[in-house]
Design a protein around this nucleic acid. Structure first.
Lengths: 146, 146
DNA sequence: TATTGTTATACTCTATAACTATA
DNA sequence: TATAGTTATAGAGTATAACAATA
C-alpha cells in the first residue's frame, strides 16, 4: 500500500509535469505561481520558508519566470533588501490556465472511480496527509534534506 | 486529490528511502534486490526491460551490490554475453531484512487508519493502479523518459 | 553584526551514445 | 551483423557556503 502510494504519486507527478510543460512551466514553477498568486507580495525568504526549501533554489526558478514576464520582483521601499513577489497580468493569465490544466489532470488521475469513490478516497487521503503533517498545497519535494 | 497522491507518494518514497538507507541501500537497489530475489537468473537486459530502464543504469547499482557481496553476476555458459543475476546468501539475508523494513514502513505510512479503512484504501488504490497500467512491484521512477 | 538575495561550486542521478566481447 | 553489458560524457536539479547590498 505504501508502495502503491509511491507508484501512484509518481504517476500523478509525472503526468502533471507533462501537462504544465505545455505552459512551459516546470512543476516547481507551477507551484510557485500558485503560491504567489494566492498571496502576493511575499519575500523570497518567506516563500522559501513556507516550502521548506533553501532560498537559493528559488533564484533560478524566479529568474526564468521574471524573464518571461510572468512575475515581478519589486523592491520593498521600507526594507530594500526584500523583493516583493507579484504576478504580472500575463502571470495571472498563466495561473488561470494552470487551473484548467489542474482540473483536467485531476480527472485523468482519478479516472475509473465513481463520484462516491472519489469522495471516499479523498477523505482517506486527507486523513493520511494530516497524519503526516502535510501542509495544504506544499509538495514535500521542495523540502531540504533533514 | 491528484496533488494529495503526489504529496503522499513523495512522503512514502522519502521515508522508505530513509529506512533502506539503514541497510545501506538506495531505493532503486532495494527494488533490484527484491526483483532478483523473486526471480533469480535473469539477465541484466531482462531486468532492465521489466523496469523500463536503460540497461546502463543498472550497471552502477549492480556493481555496488556485487562489490558488497550481496549479489553475483554469473556468466551464462550457453551465451557468454549474458550475466545471470543471483543473490548471495548475504543478499538473501538483506532481502529478509528488507521485508521487515517494508512492513514497518507500511505501518508507518498508513498510521491512523483502522483495519477497515486500510482495506478500503488498498482497494481504491488498486483500482487506480490498474487504471494507470502500473505493473505490480515496478516503480514508475525506473521508467525512461517517453 | 544580522539579514536578503545571489553567485560559485560541487554532487547526485540519469540518459545517450560509443565501445567491447561475444554470438 | 547483431546483441549483452560497459564506459564516457553531458545535462538537469539541487544543496552548501561564500558573497554583496542593505539594515
Amino acid at each position: 500500500m505504501a508502495f502503491r502510494l509511491a507508484q501512484l504519486g509518481a504517476v500523478a507527478a509525472e503526468q502533471f509535469g507533462e501537462r504544465v510543460a505545455e505552459l512551459e512551466l516546470s512543476r516547481p514553477q507551477a507551484g510557485l505561481l500558485r503560491l504567489i498568486g494566492r498571496r502576493p507580495g511575499q519575500s523570497q525568504r518567506a516563500v522559501a520558508a513556507q516550502l521548506g526549501t533553501p532560498p537559493s533554489r528559488l533564484v533560478a526558478l524566479l529568474d526564468d519566470l521574471e524573464r518571461r514576464d510572468l512575475l515581478e520582483r519589486r523592491r520593498n521601499p521600507d526594507d530594500r533588501r526584500n523583493h516583493e513577489l507579484h504576478l504580472t497580468p500575463a502571470g495571472e493569465r498563466t495561473l488561470d490556465r494552470l487551473g484548467v490544466v489542474a482540473a483536467d489532470h485531476e480527472a485523468a488521475v482519478t479516472v475509473g472511480l465513481s463520484a462516491a469513490e472519489r469522495t471516499r478516497l479523498d477523505e482517506l487521503l486527507g486523513r493520511l496527509a494530516a497524519a503526516h503533517g502535510l501542509a495544504e498545497g506544499v509538495h514535500p519535494g521542495y523540502r531540504r534534506p533533514d
